[in-house]
């Protein structure tokens, strides 16, 4: 994205109006999840492949209010000659959060959070793609987050694997992601933004954290694991297991979406 030089931004002291909300509105008690979701339920997923006609492959995912779009270009010749690897291809991942996606307006220039997400996505996707089949080439995966309502990394992983499958890139398995929010002794699977951020008072309690797991369901191998916050080791272990179950629940939906896209592309049967 280009550097935004023409727009006149407000003075530096300008702040988001959310800061001025009365304190009670900022805390979020998680007594009842919206939509009557249980603590271990993932949000219903809407997934479609083949949106962007120019790209080799693309996918769009909606989970609750989180909307993510991904497009795949390649395999192409590597741009930087010194990075050419004779034996395997490269996977270049780029995650962008649209400026209007979060509650607070984001900057146009890629911030450190986006670079962190791009690196995390690349590490999670690499074990799943058969890169040795594309020596000296690079595959570009571009993810755009249109609305951030929690679980961005997890859903970006799922979206990217669907786009790769749509592009016909050889993969060992579909990579699925699932996020979790640990709050004291209870855990919430697939949190939305307010659940993920949590309340500031709760932050002083024990066992608070967020876990994101990327899984290859047929091999039962974990390809990505990110956790932060402060948790006990056994809580962490239980959280990882719960996330893995969440991924398995997502698998049939993703499978259906990819098959539907394949059927649309396939030529009609000869009579």
């Amino acid at each position: 994205m280009p550097v935004d030089t023409k727009r006149v931004r407000g003075p530096d002291e300008s702040q988001s109006p959310l800061v001025f909300l009365p304190p009670t509105a900022q805390t979020c008690e998680v007594l009842r999840r919206p939509g009557d979701r249980g603590k271990g339920d993932v949000r219903p997923l809407f997934a479609r492949c083949g949106l962007v006609s120019q790209a080799k492959g693309s996918a769009y995912i909606e989970a609750g209010n989180t909307k993510i779009m991904c497009s795949v270009y390649g395999p192409r010749e590597t741009e930087r000659k010194d990075d050419t690897d004779m034996k395997s291809g490269r996977l270049v991942c780029d995650v962008r959060l649209a400026p209007f996606s979060c509650q607070k307006r984001g900057a146009w220039i890629q911030g450190s959070e986006e670079r962190d997400l791009s690196l995390a996505l690349s590490e999670s996707m690499q074990p799943g793609v058969c890169l040795h089949r594309y020596p000296r080439s690079q595959i570009e995966v571009n993810v755009m987050v249109l609305e951030n309502d929690g679980g961005v990394l997890a859903h970006a992983v799922t979206c990217a694997s669907m786009a790769l499958a749509d592009a016909g890139i050889e993969m060992y398995d579909v990579v699925l992601g699932c996020a979790l929010r640990q709050d004291g002794d209870s855990c919430l699977v697939d949190p939305d933004f307010s659940e993920e951020r949590g309340s500031w008072q709760a932050g002083y309690g024990e066992n608070q954290g967020r876990v994101t797991v990327a899984l290859l369901p047929n091999f039962n191998q974990v390809s990505g694991l990110h956790a932060d916050g402060e948790m006990r080791e056994d809580t962490l272990t239980a959280a990882v297991r719960t996330c893995m179950d969440g991924c398995h629940k997502l698998y049939p939906v993703v499978q259906q979406a990819i098959l539907r896209a394949v059927k649309r592309k396939a030529p009609p049967p000869e009579k």
């Binding site: 590490e123 074990p127 956790a227 932060d228 402060e230 006990r232 962490l236």
Partner: peptide, 22 residues
């Protein structure tokens, strides 16, 4: 108490190895 866990590198890990390594 564990404050941050990350998997680095290009390969995948078995869940049992993850628990052992943790």
């Amino acid at each position: 108490m564990v404050t941050c866990v990350r998997k680095l590198g290009r390969g995948s890990l078995d869940p049992d190895s993850i628990f052992e390594m943790t």
